[in-house]
Simulated scan of single mutants.
Amino acid sequence: MTTNQPAAPPAGPVLGVDVGGTLIKAAAVAADGEVVARLERPTPPARDPDTVLSAVGSVVETLRAQVPDRVEALGVAVPGIIDEARGVAVMAANLGWRDTPVADLLSAATGLPVALGHDVRAACVAEWRLGVAKGGSDVLLATLGTGIGAGVVSGGRLLVGSGYAGQLGHTVVDPDGQRCSCGQRGCLATIASATAVVRRYAERTGGAEHPDGTPALSARDVAQRARAGDPAAAAVWADAVGALGRSLAIAVTVFGSELVVLGGGLALAGDQLIGPVQDSLDEWLTFQRRPRVVRAAMGAESGVLGAALLGRAALEETPVT
């Protein structure tokens, strides 16, 4: 005998918010992954949790007002050491946060269930569920921006490490190198981050800064100069590619990744980065599985989309797999 039961109401959208040092990016994402509304606002210069989270709450309420359907949940991605299970930002240096119960504070302010995630792991989830790594079971995403972070999927599961997993930028590639902000010397981030590429080029050329102290060039500018034959730019670029290949080889050896995805500002160089990194990585590998290196597909929205996916998974009480 068949029993007719009322159909479940359609799932409403989930909000994803990516809190960066410069911008707060937000989007309302439907259950099928379609972005139905977007919003960006500057991150407040005051880095105390109350000020920044108040700005996030304002973004959430503005976005909710733009969405006709009832918003189901909120996913938030932030940088630093993030304890996703407790919803706590253990340390988010560029936001000035330490042991901040982000999920509880935002849930109280918005009345929504809140899932907190790390920004790079959220970007990894977006590429894995919706982007270039869709369907993969062993994936490593590296974002090359102000710093370098990684998201790792192993055996079809996202690795979290109680918030400490994925610190690829702090693998040491030159023990006698420059002091890193973490206190170690010669970390990958001091050579191959977008920030490091600009700094190292300026050190070689005496490159100028704008009046406000910001670099006059971007990492993409340095890449273009390298391609045009500028010897200083070419040397800096080669150092970055070589260091990145070496660190990725270590990660691949540990995790057995079958696909390496490169995102962030440095990845805008496209084939000028992807091909050389593939070659550098292959040179360091012997018996290991040789992963394919590709450019991320989700672009600047990866953190927002990943945050929304984390929010949806928490709402449905399902793991992000």
Rank of each mutant, 00 (worst) to 15 (best):
H210Q: 13
A233L: 10
T171Q: 06
V241T: 15
G161R: 09
Y201E: 03
G213F: 05
P175N: 07
V197S: 10
V198W: 04
V197A: 10
H210P: 00
A208V: 12
G229C: 08
P215I: 12
I191R: 09
T195S: 15
I191S: 05
E209G: 09
G177I: 03
V160P: 00
G183S: 11
Q224P: 00
G242H: 13
Q184R: 15
P175R: 13
Y164P: 00
A216W: 02
D230R: 14
L159A: 07
A194I: 10
V222D: 02
R157Y: 00
P175I: 07
A196N: 10
A232Q: 15
V172T: 14
W237C: 12
L158C: 03
L158T: 07
P231L: 12
G229R: 10
V173N: 00
A240H: 05
P215G: 14
A202M: 07
G163E: 00
L159D: 00
L159E: 00
T190M: 03
A232F: 13
A235S: 15
V241K: 11
G183Y: 11
D212R: 11
S193D: 04
I191D: 01
P231V: 14
L188Y: 06
Y164I: 06
G186I: 04
Q224W: 02
L188T: 09
R220V: 14
Q178R: 15
G183R: 13
A196E: 06
A189Y: 00
H170F: 06
C180E: 05
G229P: 05
G156Y: 04
T205M: 11
P231Y: 12
G207R: 09
S218M: 04
R200P: 06
V198Y: 06
W237S: 13
Q167S: 08
C182K: 09
T171P: 00
A234S: 15
A219W: 02
G242Y: 00
S181K: 09
T195F: 09
S181M: 01
R225E: 02
E209W: 04
A189I: 01
S218T: 15
Y201P: 06
T190F: 01
D212Q: 08
G177Y: 04
G242S: 15
G213A: 07
Q184L: 07
R200W: 08
P231W: 11
R179S: 10
D221Y: 10
R185E: 02
R200M: 09
A202N: 12
C182P: 07
G183V: 08
G213M: 03
S193T: 10
S162M: 03
A226M: 07
P175L: 08
A216V: 08
V197T: 13
G177R: 07
Q178M: 04
G242C: 10
A208F: 01
C187H: 08
G163H: 04
L217D: 02
V173M: 02
W237K: 14
